[in-house]
Write a protein that binds this DNA or RNA. Structure first.
Length: 581
RNA sequence: GGGGACGUCGUCUAGUCUGGUUAAGACACCUGGCUGUCAAUCAGGAAAGCGUGGGUUCAAAUCCCAUCGUCCCCGCCA
């Protein structure tokens, strides 16, 4: 036994105990006659004092200690002299008077300081991830992640869910994201795909009668990265038989409530509001609205067209948003908002300031007092407000103004950073039209059940068909996606055909799955929640990289290991692969 | 595929717009002093030729071109 206690637990009550601590040298303060070492481990920091009167030998050895050396220190816990207690440290009332010192390992001077507040840039942190992970905030993130995963398992176990592992080496299927492929040496020219999600396996587990399944599942997608997107991410994946959407809502709401309580001690308000896709698009311009603040998009198409402003008159849709007290925003700040609108495809951002003297704006002259007044009324505008408008195709007007809304929320400090506001977004369209490929694509995935009432439209007006889908949104972040699935093989085939899949392709790609549905597949549904994103929000971080022990860069490489890397000719030959140069 | 920001001692920055002495500071590091520090302190020291390659110029960290890397975003991500 190298240690008797952790570096975070010794308190007044331990005074006079003989203890042995192990840890890293956080800091050495050498006063010549007296040396202080802050010894750090996962649990905290304890001050160790080397006094030649207690041990000449240890004091001599301690002179050679440097940052990040690994030590085992034996000594007596004693109260700090009156007036030298450190209130900012949980162990600050005591210190260990070292009588024994063993240097377990030395350390090079680290490339950056192991401090709570990082100064090092992220690429350096990633290259030395094991040092970055020594920092307390990173340890807290990873430990929080562990607690969330643990609480998830506890909760779902109690609810009768069985954790089942599904293959990592699986089959490439069309639709969705690009697959990561793995060549098969035993079957030259053939490839496994890493799963984008365990979707088909969990459905087949329902066919198998497991009734309730879950998995903390790694998912792989070979797409471009973002702050909240990594090539491999982890989902809390679950599926249940004989359920309605309401069963899933209730389960997930209870689970979220349990997770937040168990890990953060935070109470979550239930039930979560439920809104349709159509409604959130109209009101917030996005399928994942941040409802921590109220600003909503307002349809002013009718009123806007009454003026003489050509751009309004010719637009299919005019959406407006009211920035309370936005009068104070400078032209430059409005210009910034307008740039955001441009990025999201709008051609411009029109604005009106409501001042004492009336409407101040380059476009005010195009509108009569009457029109201006009805605009004011419709948007519930008050003096001092700034009104912003985008006139365009409905998708653009909504989408771009939705982004302006988010920027406004931040700019005007309307967002309660400490709040957790969940929202269900339901009834997504089953399909969307891909302009590039000129065909229908599944909005979520091809296994979502269409709403029964919309079934007659399936072949006639496919875009009007809504599906039994539900997205869970938290603070403007898409946390998870789920649906009731198709369990009828005939209906599943109809949907495949709608997606433009030929009979041959259907049986090649999905034959095994359709066959499974033929053998008494129960009605079922489920959801998958992004664990990385959930922990990111809980930890108050801006990127999921801070919640993943060993993440990849935006170019999908590991700076730590240098992967992906070249492989030997022999390896390629064995796989019968040739690299084109 | 596209847009943007950044790259200077170990680290983080200043310097770059407006080319011109020994490229500056803080932290870290090294040596020495110091028995109550915890952002220890005092004295001294070492440390980068400015991501890489090319070009312009009497002269390039600074201007131009290319390239590499990191980050943010659009597209993409069911």
């Amino acid at each position: 036994m190298k240690r008797t206690h952790s570096c975070g637990e010794l308190k007044k009550k331990d005074i006079d105990k003989e203890v042995t601590l192990c840890g890293w040298v956080q800091k050495r303060r050498d006063h010549g006659g007296l040396i202080f070492i802050d010894l750090r481990d996962r649990e905290g920091i304890t001050q160790v004092v080397f006094n030649p009167k207690i041990s000449k030998e240890s004091h001599r050895k301690a002179q050679g200690l440097r940052s990040e050396y690994v030590l085992s220190v034996g000594g007596k816990v004693s109260p700090r002299p009156r007036g030298t207690e450190n209130k900012s440290l949980p162990t600050g009332e005591i210190e260990v008077l070292a009588s024994k010192l063993e240097i377990l390992n030395e350390s090079q001077t680290p490339p950056f300081e192991i401090a709570d507040r990082v100064k090092a840039l992220e690429d350096l942190r990633l290259r030395y991830r094991y040092l970055d992970l020594r920092r307390r905030p990173m340890q807290e993130n990873i430990i929080l992640r562990h607690r969330v995963a643990k609480a998830t398992r506890d909760f779902l176990d109690k609810k009768g869910f069985i954790e089942v592992e599904t293959p990592i080496l699986t089959k490439s299927t069309p639709e969705g994201a690009r697959d990561y492929l793995v060549p098969s040496r035993v079957n030259p020219g053939r490839f496994f795909a890493l799963p984008q999600s365990p979707q088909l396996f969990k459905q087949m587990l329902m066919v198998a009668g497991f009734d309730r399944y879950f998995q903390i599942a790694r998912c792989f997608r070979d797409e471009d990265l973002r702050a909240d997107r990594q090539p491999e991410h982890t989902q809390i994946d679950l599926e249940a038989s004989f359920v309605e959407p309401g069963d899933i809502y209730a389960l997930i709401e209870e689970m979220m409530s349990y997770l937040f309580k168990a890990t953060l001690g935070v109470r979550i308000k239930r039930p979560f509001p439920i809104t349709t896709y159509q409604e959130v698009m109209d009101r917030f311009g996005t399928e994942k609205p941040d409802i921590r603040f109220d600003l909503e998009l307002i349809d002013v198409t009718e009123i806007g067209k009454e003026g003489d402003y050509r751009i309004f008159k010719e637009a299919a849709s005019i959406k407006g948003i009211r920035a309370p007290k936005g009068e104070n925003l400078s032209l430059k700040e409005i210009e910034k908002l307008s740039e955001i609108a441009l990025v999201y495809g709008a051609k411009g951002l029109a604005w009106l300031k409501v001042t004492k003297e009336g409407m101040a704006s380059p476009i005010a002259k195009f509108f009569s007092e009457k029109v201006k007044n009805s605009l004011m009324r419709k948007m519930k505008a008050e003096e001092g407000d700034l009104l912003l408008f985008i006139a365009d195709k409905p998708e653009i007007a909504n989408g771009a103004l939705g982004q302006v809304r988010l920027a406004l929320g931040r700019k005007l400090r309307l967002i309660n950073e400490k709040g957790y506001r969940f929202l269900w977004v339901i009834d997504f369209p089953l399909l969307e039209f891909d302009e590039e490929e000129k065909r229908f694509k599944a909005m979520h995935h091809p296994f979502c059940m269409p709403k029964e009432g919309d079934l007659p439209l399936l072949e006639k007006e496919p875009l009007k068909v809504r599906s039994k889908t539900y997205d869970l949104v938290l603070n403007g972040v898409e946390l998870g996606t789920g649906s009731i699935r198709i369990h009828d093989p005939r209906l599943q085939k109809r949907v495949f055909r709608l997606l433009g899949l030929g009979e041959e392709e259907i049986s090649f790609k999905f034959g095994f799955f359709l066959e499974a549905l033929e053998y008494g597949a129960p009605p079922h549904g489920g959801i998958a929640l992004g664990l990385d994103r959930l922990v990111m929000i809980m930890a108050g971080r801006e990127t999921i990289r801070d919640t993943i022990a060993f993440p990849k860069t935006q170019r999908a490489t590991s700076l730590l290991t240098g992967s992906p890397s070249l492989v030997s000719e022999e390896q390629l030959k064995e796989l019968r692969l040739k690299i084109e140069r």
